Amino acid sequence: MSAATATATAGAAPRSAGALAGFRIAVTSQRRSAELIEALERRGAQVLHAPTLRLAPLAEDTELLDNTRRVLQLRPEYVLVSTAYGFRRWFETAEAAGLGDELAQVLRAARIHVRGPKALGAVRALGFHAEAMAGDELTSTMVARLAPLLEGKAVVLQHHGLGDDESAAALLEAGTRELVRISPYRWVPPEDAGKPEVLLRALCSGSLDALTFTSAPAVVALLEAARQHGCHPELLHALQTTITTVAVGPVTAAPLREAGIEPLVPSRHRMGAMIHTLVEHLGRRGALECATVLGPCQLRGDTVHLGGAGTELGASQLRLFKALLEARGNVVSRGALAALLPDGSSDHALDMAVSRLRGALPDARLVSTVVKRGYRLNA
């Protein structure tokens, strides 16, 4: 499958108009992905769904139940809850094993602290009381605030599917008497192992406008996949320069920021707010515009608009036209344009690519040839 997976297939129904019409957006999540994809497509976006990880329950829940029995014996003073899904699944698994009533007694006696609003909602929905929530929704903040109180105490840490070694180490350093780590699920590779590679090719080739993340492990998995496929520098460059990256909250954003990528993060850490933030950003900054001798020209995602007509460009055509549009009538050298095509492109290959670009534009006269120098937008 090529990077063009993100574009509409031949013979597909015409795109719906909307705030995201013409933009190509990748969704990396597995959980609730259908909801996110439907919301983006309803606004006119083309969506590439490429999960980098998937959630899988622990095998037969043996480890989870063993640790739950440890919690029942331990009667901890503190229970730290990181994720809503994890807390719900822990309690549901305990109930299915006949341990629900006893676990409920333990939780009611413990001082429960939660990472964020979703975890708080899950705790309350099951009838328990949370004593406090981290203001910035970070587990590290929750642990740091509690550390002075934990010496000699028994503590339970419910964490996400990749574990949380740093928080666990901080709790042990605080002098906890005993620490039990509860992991009600784990992250495993996606069912379609080729999807991360498809996503990487699309990102590195410039075939996408935006990339969405709803979990930190998904970010880590994509960066690791890039290292394994030898395109880590290219991926970082794309995410730092041309592709809009959006994370649902600060926890998800953390590994992106560590890699030098500054994502959009909504003020409310919810999927709906993430979509609104992305729509607002692309509507304001995602389109390129330039006045030409043929009238105003706008590029939204992969679609060129001129005089009321709009046409879609292929991946190579898009790279060439974006370079010309950004130059705003100045000459773009043949060498600079050839560098945007596959390695080893000859002068003839560049001329053919420009010819195909002209044929795809609403008006071929948008691109002018500057003999022996290169090409420019007819502005």
Results as ranks from 00 to 15, higher is better:
residue 95 E to F: 07
residue 89 R to Y: 10
residue 100 G to F: 12
residue 86 G to F: 06
residue 129 H to M: 07
residue 116 G to Y: 11
residue 95 E to S: 15
residue 52 T to V: 10
residue 53 L to E: 04
residue 61 D to K: 11
residue 58 L to F: 08
residue 74 L to S: 08
residue 96 A to E: 10
residue 53 L to N: 04
residue 106 V to D: 01
residue 85 Y to C: 02
residue 97 A to T: 06
residue 100 G to W: 12
residue 55 L to A: 10
residue 89 R to F: 02
residue 86 G to R: 02
residue 70 R to F: 03
residue 102 E to S: 15
residue 76 P to N: 05
residue 76 P to D: 01
residue 128 F to V: 06
residue 82 S to P: 05
residue 102 E to P: 00
residue 112 I to M: 04
residue 89 R to N: 15
residue 54 R to Q: 14
residue 69 R to V: 06
residue 128 F to D: 04
residue 110 A to G: 02
residue 56 A to Q: 14
residue 73 Q to A: 13
residue 123 V to K: 00
residue 63 E to F: 03
residue 81 V to K: 07
residue 93 T to C: 07
residue 94 A to K: 06
residue 63 E to W: 00
residue 100 G to K: 04
residue 93 T to L: 04
residue 88 R to H: 13
residue 131 E to N: 02
residue 126 L to E: 08
residue 113 H to Q: 05
residue 50 A to R: 01
residue 64 L to P: 05
residue 84 A to T: 13
residue 63 E to C: 11
residue 104 A to H: 03
residue 85 Y to A: 14
residue 81 V to H: 01
residue 63 E to N: 11
residue 58 L to S: 07
residue 70 R to W: 10
residue 71 V to H: 00
residue 90 W to L: 11
residue 77 E to N: 01
residue 57 P to R: 10
residue 130 A to M: 11
residue 52 T to I: 09
residue 93 T to W: 01
residue 124 R to C: 08
residue 96 A to I: 07
residue 80 L to R: 00
residue 98 G to F: 10
residue 55 L to F: 12
residue 81 V to R: 02
residue 51 P to A: 15
residue 100 G to E: 07
residue 56 A to I: 08
residue 108 R to P: 04
residue 88 R to C: 12
residue 119 A to S: 15
residue 130 A to F: 02
residue 78 Y to I: 03
residue 76 P to G: 01
residue 121 G to I: 09
residue 73 Q to F: 09
residue 124 R to Y: 14
residue 130 A to P: 02
residue 114 V to Y: 04
residue 108 R to M: 05
residue 61 D to M: 12
